[in-house]
Computed example of a mutant assay.
Amino acid sequence: MTARLDAKFAALAQQGRAGLVTFLTAGDPDPGTTLELLTGLPAAGADVIELGMPFSDPMADGPAIQWSSLRALKAGQTLAKTLDLVRAFRAGDDTTPLVLMGYYNPIYVYGVARFLADAKAAGVDGLIVVDLPPEEDDELCLPALDAGIAFIRLATPTTDDQRLPKVLANTAGFVYYVSITGVTGTATPDFDKVGAAVARLKRHTRLPVAVGFGVKTAAHAGAVARGADAVVVGSALVETVRTSLDAEGLATDKTVPAVLGLVRELAAGVRGAVRAA
């Protein structure tokens, strides 16, 4: 749907490897640190960036991302400030795809038409909005597609073959396969089942398939990368942010190096994976 996402996944296919998709929450622990992390991610090995839109009730997320949202909100992060971060990132990087991920409520409050116009102008390539099912496509999905912003849908282990076509109907950019049942960051995927699930999705769509939820280490990332088009890591990164903070919850001189160091490890795991035939 968007040039940056299409170009990135085409380049990954040409290189014969999976991509690394990294998630951070905007404004965690403060906007300046987020921007420093964003600008460092591509060089550390991130192929696509997901930026979380903080929300007070992130029901699909486990404790690590819930806490990151609360830290960001406490620091004064808003949806408008999140778009400011995207603009600042785009000032120095016009090629790395950036996707906003979160919940519908902040977008609804902002105003859908205004949000899509501002997001497009800021340089947002896609949206993942976890609480809008296909039955609600008129709310945001179709307007986003009309605005030239990919609407990236989640598929889960419980999405059966009857439901899958509806889930995929207006999906663009890539399909995000949730590798576990439950919330983010709380379990480790069964990597054999992940491979089979990706193969099943590929029978229904030509879109790239990215796999996330539960990927914490370079070994995990490498295992997923053998069969998926991309590996998504979020909870492990925001937990690294948390453990680097001082007693008041503020960033330290360890925060940025710790997060980018983990990204480099994950990227090495992804790049070292032997792809399934």
Rank of each mutant, 00 (worst) to 15 (best):
R4W: 12
R4A: 15
A7K: 10
L12D: 11
A13N: 12
Q15H: 10
L20V: 15
T22G: 00
P31M: 03
P42C: 09
G45C: 10
A46T: 06
V48W: 07
L51K: 10
G52R: 03
D57F: 05
P63S: 03
Q66C: 03
S68K: 03
L70D: 10
G76K: 12
K81P: 00
K81M: 02
K81W: 04
R87F: 01
F89Q: 08
A91H: 15
D94G: 11
D94I: 14
T95G: 11
L100I: 00
L100C: 01
Y104H: 12
I107H: 06
A113P: 14
L116Y: 14
A117H: 15
G123P: 05
G126K: 14
L140D: 15
L145Y: 01
I149E: 08
R153H: 12
L154E: 07
D161Q: 12
D161H: 14
Q162A: 09
Q162M: 05
F174L: 11
V175P: 02
T181H: 04
G182H: 10
D192F: 09
K193I: 13
V194D: 09
A197I: 06
H204L: 07
R206D: 14
L207Q: 02
V209I: 14
G212F: 00
G212S: 04
G214S: 05
G214F: 06
V232S: 07
V233F: 09
L237H: 08
V238E: 15
E239K: 13
R242M: 13
E248T: 06
V256L: 01
L266P: 02
V270E: 14
G272V: 02
A273D: 05
